[in-house]
Nucleic acid binder design. Structure first.
Ligand SMILES: [Mn+2]
Ligand SMILES: [Mn+2]
Ligand SMILES: [Zn+2]
Ligand SMILES: [Zn+2]
Lengths: 125, 125
DNA sequence: TTTACATTTGCAACAGTGTTGCAGTAAAGG
DNA sequence: CCTTTACTGCAACACTGTTGCAAATGTAAA
């Protein structure tokens, strides 16, 4: 997979962001550097390469964030929680929060999507 | 809130369904009984009245399902899991599955959205 | 039963998200 | 520098969900 300007800039954005970003947020922050469609396709590539993981936010919109441990550990585990602040709108990875649960017999769980909403520390005070 | 034909039929659909339904699925099953927009507005009403609860599926689409214990217990608790079968596409409430988790300090959790995906019992064999 | 009126509905129009096909562009290696 | 093929932009599309407004309808009072 080739290193293009769009890819490089999107990777930079995600690396420097402390919140998960949606394709449209990324497009805005790129100030017209590339087309909307390219953002989608680059993100798809970055996910395949293991640089980012994606999830669906409570509002149904896609969000992308860098993988924290995957690149170092070479193991992909994305069963952590995501937090959506209803005040500032920020969506953050809670890498340390992994839900414990038990499903009824015969259900085979492959992936989980665990999104919390409420007030984040920044907005709490 | 008034009892209209649309509302009655949508309630029937949801009551008799063992899977959660999206507005568009409901619209289809109503065979043109009412407008698309009406489905959205009726569902909104039913949710306010406490007959149904809604959540966002892994694919970002809204899903509605009847409340099981709420109407009898008069307590609303919707922190249960939802299961999305990747084979048949069915989305079901797992009323008994409630995730256990702990968030970092200063995070105030108001609601949770916990969606599992994998293979359902029907498709497992 | 009729009337009055707030609620509900249909329609049209819209915003937003995500996808696809295709022609043109540019990265990477030789 | 040339060739190959991945990548990009554009246009067009499908789908989900929302809103404003005029017309229809449910409900309760007259
Ligand atoms: Mn994450
Ligand atoms: Mn449910
Ligand atoms: Zn916040
Ligand atoms: Zn299934």
């Amino acid at each position: 997979m080739r290193n293009t300007i769009a890819k490089t800039e999107i990777q930079k954005l995600l690396n420097h962001s402390d919140v998960a970003l949606s394709p449209s947020e990324i497009e805005t922050q790129l100030h017209g550097l590339c087309n909307r469609v390219t953002v989608y396709r680059v993100l798809e590539r970055l996910e395949k390469e293991g640089f980012v993981h994606k999830f669906t936010n409570v509002d149904g919109v896609l969000k992308y964030a860098v993988c924290q441990d995957c690149d170092t550990n070479h193991i992909h585990h994305h069963n952590h929680a995501h937090f959506n602040c209803t005040k500032c709108g920020d969506v953050t990875c809670l890498e340390t929060v992994e839900p414990k649960f038990e499903v009824p017999v015969n259900y085979e769980v492959a992936e989980i999507n665990f999104t919390l909403s409420g007030i984040c520390p920044k907005c709490a005070k």
